[in-house]
Simulated scan of single mutants.
Amino acid sequence: MASKGDLTKARLTESMLELIQTSGYSGTGLNAVIEHAAAPKGSIYFHFPDGKEGLGVAAVELAAQQFEALIAEAAASAGGAAGAARAAIEALAAIVSEGDFRLGCLVSVVTLEMGAESDRLRQACVSAFESWIAPTTALLTASGISAEEARSLATVVVSTIEGATIVSRAMRSTQPLMSAADVVAELISQRSQTAGGTR
């Protein structure tokens, strides 16, 4: 069972994640995080001695874990890499829509805002993107695509999803994400067939 301190730390991290999604990294103050998390004052520096940057890294890591879990669930329930990619993007579209287009990818937000300001946050974002590219690469390799091509294609897939998420939020429509799902699934199917893999 998690301790009271662990639960408080988790609430702070979850609140930071949600607030960055809606207000951006720069627009998220520590007092807002404390209020959102209903946490005791002083708890941030107890759990995150390096303050906002450390909390930001934890939020990026949590976002990475959530999307990695979404990929794993899609891979387990869908038939093949193309189906898994489509399922993951459709699940993401549902999250964006249900959040009234206020929620997107925290990692892209932090990258755009802080990538040139904080190398620690930038590296956390690099690790997050890698945690999505790696399992996608494994799925593509399992479909018969060579390791080198699979890595390249996985990077394109993740980049496409990131871009489509931003456009969907701007347009307040899931259509960009659904279009991305169609194109990504078709591209993976074509590459798999060319490589002698299965659809």
Rank of each mutant, 00 (worst) to 15 (best):
A170S: 15
V167E: 03
S152I: 08
F101S: 03
C105V: 03
S159Q: 02
A134C: 07
A138K: 14
T137Y: 02
S97F: 09
S179F: 08
E98W: 12
A124L: 04
S97E: 13
L103S: 01
E117K: 15
F101K: 05
V184S: 06
L187E: 02
S118D: 01
R120N: 01
S168P: 15
T160M: 15
S189F: 06
S179R: 12
L153S: 08
T137G: 06
A170Y: 15
D182K: 11
A124Q: 01
I145A: 03
T160C: 13
A195D: 04
A180H: 05
A164T: 00
E186W: 02
S168A: 07
A134W: 00
S168V: 07
V156Y: 07
T160A: 12
S146L: 07
S189Y: 00
L106N: 04
I133V: 14
S127K: 11
S97Q: 14
A180G: 01
T136D: 03
C125N: 06
S192C: 15
M114I: 05
A124E: 04
I145Y: 07
Q175K: 11
S127C: 05
D100A: 11
S131E: 04
R122D: 00
G115Y: 13
Q123S: 08
R199Y: 01
E113P: 14
G99N: 01
V96T: 02
L106T: 07
A142F: 06
S179D: 05
G197K: 13
A180Q: 04
A116E: 07
T160L: 14
F101C: 02
C105W: 03
R151C: 01
G197I: 11
E148Y: 00
I188T: 04
A138Y: 00
A116W: 05
L187F: 06
S146Y: 00
I166Y: 12
V157A: 14
G163A: 04
I133P: 14
A195Q: 11
V157Y: 04
V110Y: 05
A147R: 10
L121R: 01
G144Q: 09
G144V: 10
G197T: 04
R199S: 14
R199D: 11
M171Q: 13
T136M: 15
E113M: 08
M171C: 13
M178S: 06
L106C: 13
F101H: 03
R191S: 05
D100N: 15
F129A: 06
A138I: 03
S173N: 07
L112C: 09
G144A: 12
V167G: 08
